[in-house]
Structures are given as structure tokens and as C-alpha cells.
Nucleic acid binder design. Structure first.
Length: 524
RNA sequence: CGGGGCGUAGCGCAGUUUGGUAGCGCACCAGCUUUGGGAGCUGGGGGCCCCGGGUUCAAGUCCCGGCGCCCCGACCA
């Protein structure tokens, strides 16, 4: 590519309001942001996207995943339509798609853009062990790819069982929280980490049920102040509505919060917070006095496991300005479900009893194993059976951002060679001298012919700018063709990684470059 | 919901106290000199100073009212 014809708008100064690596990508003319936070990927950036995407596609292809192109359906609909017999198994497909996540506030980064490029692989197989085999091979490939890209991610569990997982990258401004046990090593997302039952309600002198007059105590803090009890001795009742319209009362200890995702799996359907009007309708009392007893309507009572054996609690009475004291779950009300529905906190302990460390970051790759319901295929024995399936999705935006983050240095990016937007930059020191441009063009043509993505810098700008741009983009090899060297038949060669510059004979230059730029990430 | 800040060229900002020709840096355009680490000089283009009303001979600036954006704090019944 001739630099003078490439849309490569590099910039000089620091970019405000961006992380260093994102700002550097903007400076390098790889990306631009729209006002709403959406991202334009420019030609140089697109090459990085393509290179990284290609590594994963190759990994998928190694597992036999066929490359498809389609939108608006999920891959299973196709499998459902096409797989007729076990003889076609295992069967896998892959595609690229744009995943759209609504963002509340725009944040200017690749990782949190509203539209992100994802690579998705979907596989079905005859048995769960076959799927497990595919999954573990794929994880191995992915693990080695990520480490070649310089990314240190960790594998966390993303479901209460082991069937969903996520590769996450620590980052303090991430959108995902997870916990790691300091003892058994359990790593899981915050809403599915298994925590020890934490039943430490304060024993009160009496557990005799009584009605307390608590005027205006519409929050736990006011209530505790009035009644003179600690938050730990209260039972907080949060009102939700299940997707089918069923009211759900979620009860946790007063100092804890309800985790909606945990609640969703406990209540057997997706739940949303009730509006104020709904709360009044469901509990028959103003907002702030909800409780599990004396409800005017049927509601699903979901109790956090930590309170299952508590007694002497204080909870709302479903009546304005009244609470109930001395409440005992199981005696004064019967919960429909007892489950861990509170949000995990760093104070929680792992099921093994050890302390846990909380982490924040973002997910790069997600995977999940499941049985494909509604799809039955004739097996060896002749009977119809449901198929185990695997779905893995690589968020290319995020992998690119993570790679950029670790490749960043003072001058720009020091990409792995396989990722760099060009393998080699041929810089014509001045384009005003015909012989210089001519020699540079010749070397460029030879390298292109040899199959090497090369950038010929033929712009009429100062040498400093050309060198700076080459470093900024992170092109692994830079060849300088200038009048001084040409007089003696030499060009200068330098690597992005090390500073040493070599004078090489014009006639040997091309061969030397070809020797130096063997790809550093083996894909096949 | 409360407190604070901001709104002026594509971007980043000064100018508002004390009303008087619309400014600076970067970017952009033209030309010349340059070219071994982001060049220099000269010239140039570009504005509903967030919107609406008011005071005034005169408002980016003062007054009233909107709108929008950002930060901090509170917000689990």
C-alpha cells in the first residue's frame, strides 16, 4: 500500500478522555469515535481486526467449523434444519456477527462500544464427551492464542454449574465482577459464585411476633434508628415482578442487596423491579413497609438462604407505619423458595470456607455447553436423541483492545508480528529525489510480490513524521531508503522491538526482510 | 433527588469580574525553503459565542427563563 494513498490520519498530541492505548489507536489513525461513543475502524485498524479475527477463525476451522454468513437467526435454526443423522456429527459452524449491547452512558473505547464484532462458533456432537473434547481442545487453542497476543486472562465460571464460562481480563473500569477463592481457587462471576451460607442474624431476646409502630420508617436505616436494632437483625423485602406477571418478594438481610440474576434463577423466570405503584398494589402498603406476612395477594416468597434459620427479625408489616418484630421464617411465613439470592460481597466466604478476592474486568470470550432441546437426531441405535451442543463467542473488539493495551509503549504499539497492520515499512527518506523513490518502490514491489503486506511511505513530509508514524502503527520492520545510503548502495533496516539499526546492501535487503518477518503466531 | 461545573471555529480552550471590531493553540488550504526522528516562514479560509426573552446607543459579557452535557453525593422498600 502506498502511504500517500492510504486513509491514515495520524495525530500528534495525546487524546483526552481516552485510556492510553485507546488514545494511541486514535493517534495511529486506526480508529475514530463518533459523538455517541460508537467507533469507526479505519483501514490500519481494520487490518489489526482482520489479523486478530483471522487467528480465531483459523482455530475454529481447525476444529472443523464451516464458515457461514448469515444474519438475524441463530446457528441452531440452521443445524435443526440440516442435521439429519449422527453420521454428520460432530458438526460445527462459525460466523462473524455484530453484537449490539445497549449502553447507558457512552464510553469511548472498543471494549464498551455499542456495536462490537464477534466471532461465534457453534458445534453439536453425538455425546457430551465429544462436546467436552471439542471444548477442551478449543480452550487450549484459545489459551495459547491469547498468551501469544500478550493477554493474561483468567477463566471464570459463568453459571451455577460448570457449563458456562468466560475468559475475563482484569480492568478496574470493566463491566463484569467476579470472585476468586483464596483457598480452593474457585473463580466465578459475582452472580453465580458459590458462597458459604452466612447466617449471623443477631439473636434478639424475644422471638415473639409483635407489631411495632414505626412512623415514617420507609428505609432500613430509619427503621433501625427507631427500633434500636442493627441492620443485621432485619429482613428486607424487595418487590419484583416475574415475566409472567407473578409478584415476587425477595427477602435478604437488611444490610445485603438482592442480586436480580440470582433471583431470576431462584424464581424460575426473569424478574424486574416493581414500580412504586405495583409495590403499593402488591403489598397493600406504601413503599417501604413491604414484608412477607399478611399479603393481600398471592406472591412468590423467595428467602435468601442466609436467613433460613434466623429468628427474631424485623420486617415490614404491609401496613403504613408498622413493622413486625420477632419474626421467624418458617413459623410466621412459609417461603416458597429458599435460595442464595443476595449479592456477593468481598466479605462473603467461599463454600470451602476461605476468604475470596473480588475482581473487576471485562469478558473477552464466552462459552457454554448445553443440550439442544427441540432437536432430535437419529443415533447409532436407531432411536432419536437430543444433541449436546457448544457455543463459543469471541468478542473481537475486546480482544483487539486488550492486545493494544499490552502492546502499548511510549512510541506506539509493539504488536506481535502476526497482528501488525503491515509487516514492513519501506520509507523513502525524500520523495523529491527521483532515485530514492524509485529504489524504495522497487523494494516495496519485491516485498509485495513475495506476499508480505508492506507499506511504502511515499509522502512528501519530513522524515521524522514518517518514522514516528511507522513506530506508532507498530510495523515490525522498517527500511529506510535515503540518498546518503544509496550513494554507497546501502539501505538501513531496523526492528520495532530493538533499537539496533543495520546497514544492509541494497541487493540483500529484500531477502533479509523476508527472513526476519516469519509469523510469530503459528496458526495452522 | 441534592450540590457543583461547563456550553465560544473540526478539536482543546481564553475572553465574561469592569458591556465597546470574535481571539489563541492544534487541525485545514495556498506558496516558498526544507527533509537521517513529529520542520520553518508568509499568507488564507472557517463562528446563529447553546436557545428564547429583557436591560442598553451598544450584549459572548449584565438580568430572567429554558435546553443540553460533565463531575460529586445520596438513592435496596
Amino acid at each position: 500500500m502506498h502511504c500517500s494513498r492510504l486513509f491514515l490520519p495520524t495525530l500528534k498530541g495525546d487524546q483526552p478522555r481516552l485510556t492510553p492505548w485507546t488514545g494511541m489507536m486514535v493517534r495511529a489513525g486506526m480508529i475514530r469515535f463518533a459523538g455517541d461513543g460508537d467507533c469507526y475502524v479505519l483501514p490500519a485498524g481494520r487490518r489489526v481486526f482482520d489479523n486478530i479475527g483471522c487467528l480465531f477463525q483459523t482455530a475454529f476451522s481447525r476444529l472443523g467449523a464451516h464458515e457461514l454468513l448469515f444474519h438475524g437467526h441463530d446457528a441452531f435454526a440452521l443445524l435443526l434444519q440440516e442435521i439429519k443423522s449422527y453420521k454428520m456429527l460432530p458438526f460445527a459452524v462459525q460466523r462473524r456477527k455484530i453484537s449490539t449491547t445497549p449502553v447507558r452512558r457512552p464510553s469511548f473505547g472498543l471494549a464498551f462500544a455499542q456495536h462490537r464484532l464477534c466471532l461465534e462458533m457453534t458445534a453439536v456432537a453425538e455425546s457430551t464427551s465429544d462436546i467436552g473434547q471439542i471444548e477442551s481442545t478449543l480452550r487450549e487453542y484459545i489459551h495459547s492464542l491469547l498468551s501469544d497476543l500478550g493477554i493474561c486472562s483468567s477463566l471464570v465460571s459463568a453459571s451455577p454449574g460448570e457449563e458456562q464460562w468466560m475468559l475475563v481480563l482484569p480492568y478496574d473500569k470493566g463491566d463484569t465482577d467476579w470472585y476468586e477463592c483464596n483457598g480452593c481457587g474457585q473463580k466465578a462471576l459475582d452472580w453465580c459464585v458459590q458462597v458459604a451460607r452466612d447466617d449471623m442474624p443477631v439473636k434478639t431476646e424475644t422471638s415473639e411476633l409483635k407489631r411495632l409502630y414505626t412512623p415514617g420508617a420507609s428505609t432500613m436505616a430509619i427503621l433501625c434508628e427507631q427500633v434500636g436494632i442493627p441492620l443485621e437483625a432485619t429482613l428486607k423485602t424487595m418487590v419484583y415482578v416475574r415475566e409472567d406477571g407473578m409478584p415476587v418478594l425477595a427477602m435478604v438481610r437488611g444490610d445485603r442487596e438482592v442480586d436480580v440474576r440470582r433471583l431470576t434463577s431462584a424464581a424460575g423466570g426473569s424478574c424486574r423491579a416493581a414500580t412504586q405503584a405495583e409495590i403499593e398494589e402488591i403489598t397493600g402498603a406504601p413503599c417501604g413497609f413491604a414484608g412477607p406476612c399478611n399479603l393481600p395477594h398471592k406472591a412468590l416468597l423467595v428467602l435468601d438462604s442466609a436467613l433460613a434459620h434466623a429468628s427474631g427479625l424485623v420486617a415490614g408489616a404491609n401496613e403504613a407505619d408498622y413493622h413486625l418484630g420477632g419474626l421467624v421464617p418458617g413459623r410466621d411465613f412459609i417461603p416458597d423458595v429458599i435460595s442464595t439470592i443476595r449479592k456477593a460481597t468481598p466479605q462473603d466466604r467461599c463454600v470451602c470456607g476461605c476468604t475470596m478476592t473480588s475482581h473487576r474486568g471485562f469478558g473477552l470470550i464466552t462459552g457454554s455447553r448445553f443440550i439442544l432441546t427441540g432437536m432430535k437426531v437419529q443415533g447409532r441405535s436407531g432411536t432419536l436423541q437430543e444433541l449436546p451442543a457448544l457455543s463459543v463467542s469471541v468478542d473481537v473488539n475486546r480482544v483487539v483492545e486488550a492486545t493494544a493495551r499490552f502492546a502499548l509503549d511510549e512510541r506506539g504499539f509493539n504488536w506481535p508480528k502476526s497482528v501488525a497492520p503491515f509487516r514492513c515499512a519501506v520509507i523513502a527518506v525524500t520523495v523529491r529525489e527521483a532515485s530514492v523513490l524509485e529504489q524504495a518502490s522497487k523494494i516495496y514491489a519485491d516485498l509485495q510480490r513475495a506476499g508480505l503486506h508492506t507499506l511504502l511511505d511515499d509522502r512528501d513530509v519530513g522524515l521524522g513524521a514518517k518514522m514516528a508514524d511507522s513506530d506508532l502503527l507498530g510495523i515490525p520492520i522498517r527500511m529506510l531508503v535515503g540518498p546518503q545510503g544509496l550513494q554507497h548502495g546501502y539501505v538501513e533496516m531496523a526492528c520495532r522491538t530493538g533499537g539496533e539499526r543495520e546497514q544492509v546492501k541494497l541487493s540483500e535487503a529484500v531477502d533479509l526482510v523476508l527472513k526476519k518477518v516469519q509469523p510469530d503466531i503459528q496458526t495452522i
